[in-house]
Design a protein around this nucleic acid. Structure first.
Lengths: 335, 335
DNA sequence: GTTATTTTTGAAACCCGTTTCAACCATTTA
DNA sequence: TAAATGGTTGAAACGGGTTTCAAAAATAAC
């Protein structure tokens, strides 16, 4: 059933080389023969075996994408952008859900290596991966994270530090006096930098930094929110480490009868789609997800084409005020 | 750098065939030679080229997954389950985001065909795809949809009809008198069946079916909700075609000052993760996403292993009452 | 000790598209 | 008209595991 290039050649009365040249336009072919070949391809529905081509070319036109969890809205949005950008450049996406399991990550990197993937876009934390990434000849792009000790690898990150600062400054503009930070995992640069931004603003205003630890995750957010209320009963501003945690915090606040933003104001981070769909809509820090994902693919394309590219890519962030915070001026107007 | 099986063979003083046999355990090998081979593999870090293997075996250990949009929580959850099940069986996932673009779907099916994917799990509507799927020798599984005229293809679906009935009956139990259905696209079997369930319950109770059309999508949900309020000002129960639309409806209701569930009760469909995270938590119909995704992979594995499998797979649904509906009995208790 | 049987082993063919290289044909130029 | 230049073309090699098949080695049977 599946027909080969040799069979096409036989039927068209030419050599396989000529068929290859017709398909790829890699050399001139006598117009009469070209037509014969195209006719045979058309009537047999011949489709070249991509594995054979990839084997010879040492390129499978596949980009590996390793995310912690595709179910997570932030990574879902990134995956969507990456797939789209790749598709437009005739690349396909091999998706791996690592669940932050280093063993699974390594296994997936090995698989991609053996499949001669043309690049790997990875969103992970594991410093343990440094070695693995180091002796892989595939180009890597590390997205939304930064791993120390890998000077040769391209990074793409939002300016988490600035985001942390902006979020904190915004809560102060909103008149909050007791602002507590639910900081993200300190093993991730995003968690570190956001928290650092918060701390620096505290310092500049002579405030004492107040924080709790939390994973980037809804369930953890519930626990953290309860601990927060117990520990800081007079809190009036909460800086959540991301939108999912902010959603969890809201749920707890609401069940305890706190009003947002009247009693407690709340900031998220990431601007995932749901932060806008929620009622109330969440004030948050915007990461340019679309641009970041597209750049990740672009870097791999440039690597393949041996063009140069920037290794360190820091994307600017911005703040969107929605319904969980209210500037002092606006609050006064309403009074 | 990248070493081949022939080089391993040379260094171990055996033939490539023997190395292959050691790696795959396809035949007995003299223990001394086996050790020599394993030692060389270990010290060189040799990893067999998966493309060469796949070329010969005509199997790439890749399963294609075509979803309308990975950003959509429902498909994100399905993709996650599918990836996990595939991974546990040494398969990898090639993800395609079709955006319901038939051209893109066809192109992706062709790519998967040329890559000798071992199976394709597709969530799509296009009847136009029937022909394409028909003359593909790869096993297909159609998930969450049903396409008429493809008797040979495996389908996996939740019992949308029952779900539609249950949702409607629940709203009636909750004392709603004016129940309007925001029905999903009638080109999908899910849209048809859910609506049919609603209609049948109406008929059985001598009620007039009242409905509006809407896509499975938040933005469309906003429009539909506004139209609904204009058209049916005395509505007191809304049956949304899925959770995303229910979220949109809630947003409109809330902005217009309606209370849920006191003034209007609201049912979703799918039980996506966010339906529980929202405030209020949404009453909805549960599709067994996990089981459905796992079965899709299992069917492909069975096909590959030439075992038999069920072609028509209808999964049972159930109802979860949360905070957007309230049974009459409960309402009375509270009075 | 010899023959029969089983196990191990490697050479070569295979999967299939691509590319190189030399042969071939058709123009141009001298 | 002969030599030189340029464009077409196909045979063969290539990429790298896998498998077949027959030879070689080892064991069993007589």
């Amino acid at each position: 059933m599946m027909i080969s290039i040799r069979e096409v050649a036989r039927r068209a009365g030419v050599s396989p080389s000529t068929v290859s040249r017709v398909m790829n336009g890699t050399a001139n072919v006598d117009p009469i023969k070209r037509e014969r070949v195209l006719a045979v391809i058309h009537e047999t529905g011949f489709a070249p075996n991509e594995l054979a081509r990839a084997l010879f070319k040492k390129s499978s036109k596949i980009i590996g994408v390793i995310v912690p969890n595709i179910e997570n809205a932030f990574f879902g949005e990134l995956a969507r952008v990456i797939e789209e950008e790749a598709y437009q450049n005739q690349y396909r996406i091999l998706l791996c859900n690592s669940l932050n399991d280093t063993k699974k990550e390594i296994l997936n990197i090995q698989t991609l290596n053996r499949l001669h993937a043309d690049g790997i876009i990875i969103m992970t934390n594991s410093e343990n991966l440094a070695a693995q990434i180091g002796n892989c000849q595939i180009p890597f792009v590390i997205l939304d994270r930064k791993i120390e000790g890998l000077d040769e690898i391209a990074f793409i990150e939002a300016d988490h530090y600035k985001g942390g600062r902006m979020a904190m400054e915004h809560l102060m503009d909103c008149g909050c006096k007791q602002i507590v930070c639910i900081r993200g995992p300190q093993k991730y640069s995003s968690g570190q930098q956001r928290f650092l931004g918060y701390c620096d603003v505290c310092k500049e205003h002579g405030l004492q930094a107040q924080w709790l630890d939390c994973d980037y995750d809804y369930e953890e957010g519930l626990t953290a929110a309860e601990a927060l209320l117990a520990q800081y009963p007079d809190v009036d501003g909460i800086l959540a480490c991301n939108d999912m945690v902010a959603i969890a915090v809201y749920k707890i606040l609401q069940s305890r009868g706190y009003r947002v933003p009247e009693d407690i104001q709340l900031m998220g981070f990431d601007n995932i789609r749901f932060s806008r769909l929620f009622t109330p809509e969440f004030s948050t820090i915007v990461q340019p997800i679309k641009e970041m994902g597209a750049l990740a693919v672009q870097i791999i394309l440039k690597y393949v084409q041996e063009e140069s590219f920037e290794k360190e890519n820091l994307f600017d962030v911005s703040l969107i005020q929605r319904q969980t915070t209210r500037r002092k001026a606006e609050a006064n107007e309403k009074q």
